[in-house]
Amino acid sequence: MLEAIQLRKEYGSNVALKGLDLKVGAGEIYCMLGANGAGKTTTVNCFLGFIQPTGGQALINGIDVQQQPLETKKCIAYIPENVMLYRNMTGLENLRYFSKLGGHDYDEAKYRSLLDECGLQREAVEQNIDGYSKGMRQKVGIAIALAKQARAILLDEPTSGLDPKSSNEFSELLLDLKSTGVAILMVTHDLFRAKQTGTRLGIMRRGELVREMNSDQVSHAEVEQIYLEEMKY
């Protein structure tokens, strides 16, 4: 479970997060929406321990990220907007390496099946990352997250730049993960995908969570309308 309690981050006079309170429970996909600079990525970075909050707490499974950064990272997987991999290694080698770093080692067949499950073409598995498109890299990134068997996943605009088919496959994967009880926090600009995949939606504006809603209680059009209204301020 992911939880932010009065999470605050200041960069000098600029306040990136103004006491954020947030909970993402097991089997929930929380989609965080908002304009650039709203504090979405800062929230993700706080959960990853990449930045130190000025105040409040970021908890993963009840453990404070700042107190035990390595312990909390063992419970999460992270997929950024651009999954960056080692260009001199193949997709399979990258997956095996990151999986081992995440504390899991499998046989080669399992790695191949994970990549297959994520939709990476079989012929690409043993090609160097140099020749991969962004979508192919994202798929390896998802495979890394799956291999880690994390109970919480942080996604920072993961479908940005993906073609519609890949985005759809990605959404299906997320729904599968959700059904296994994984808590997912996804930062996105894609309102359609958020409504389609998310359990709850939250709109961030200038470091504050200004609106929350259950996705099953609003239509696609309403989500868009609410979002645009919030962005007027």
């Binding site: 960056m84 770093l101 995440g102």
Partner: peptide
């Protein structure tokens, strides 16, 4: 610079 460090550090490697 390439972003792989972020990926590695997110895995809980000391």
């Amino acid at each position: 610079e390439s972003g792989t460090l972020r990926q590695v550090m997110s895995l809980g490697v000391s």
